[in-house]
Computed example of a mutant assay.
Amino acid sequence: MADPWAFREAVGRWAAGGSCGRATELAAELGLRTAVLLEGPSDLAAVEALAGLRGRDLGAEGVCVVPMGGAMSVGRYAGLLGPPGLGLRLTGLCDERERRYYERALRGARAPLPGFFVCAADLEDELIRALGTARVEGIIAAEGDLRAWETFLRQPAQHDRPRHPQLRRFLGTKKGRKIRYGRLLAESLDPANVPAPLDALLASL
């Protein structure tokens, strides 16, 4: 039985210059109708965590969430998965600073930007604002990362910075941390206070 991870890997090989054959086969086997394009694995972790909390089985709904390995890859992935390629409906998240780049790339792939939902800075920023800094610090402590967090705060570059940007920076200072906390922060959201871009994305699927 095909699984979304196999499809993601096949698309990654295709995007790197490989054959489209395996991705095409898996898309048919999975019954895919929609591809959710995300910048990286931390966004994937957050989207899948929230979908799970809402009782959604995206794979069973014909939806595959695809991390692109960076926003600059959106044109390539949109061309492979959208109208010029597999013909899937495209949606996803993008950051405000990259909106114009997405507009150009998606226009070239004949895919509309209105299907993409815009984060003010990035998804981690949206999650921290939704939870509040005190709640995020509590999650860090509960995960056993309090000592690392306190060490980080003693760095000269962090002196006198507001707590919100400190937290954003901390999440990106260790390999794998953004992915782990992408899931943890999404799982900790109040159902009534989900960041608007994330909420709108799930509602559109």
Rank of each mutant, 00 (worst) to 15 (best):
L53E: 15
L90E: 07
L53Q: 12
G82C: 09
L58A: 11
E143F: 00
G108T: 04
W5P: 00
L198T: 04
A45H: 04
T133D: 07
I140Y: 07
I139N: 13
L50I: 05
F170W: 12
K175I: 10
L26H: 04
A46S: 13
K178D: 11
A51R: 04
E126H: 15
L131W: 10
P83A: 13
P191Q: 09
E48A: 02
D160K: 10
G132T: 10
M72H: 13
P67T: 02
R22G: 00
K174E: 09
E124A: 12
A78S: 06
L171T: 00
G176C: 08
G79C: 05
D160A: 15
R161M: 12
A28E: 10
A186W: 01
W149G: 03
L185S: 04
V47S: 10
G108C: 05
L88D: 01
G12M: 00
L171N: 09
D125S: 11
D122L: 01
R163I: 06
N193Y: 09
P83W: 11
L44M: 00
K175G: 06
A2K: 01
G62D: 05
G52S: 08
I128C: 07
P83I: 08
P162N: 00
P195F: 06
S204L: 08
A192V: 12
R89N: 03
L113T: 10
R54F: 08
P4C: 09
R183Y: 14
G18M: 12
R169G: 09
G12H: 13
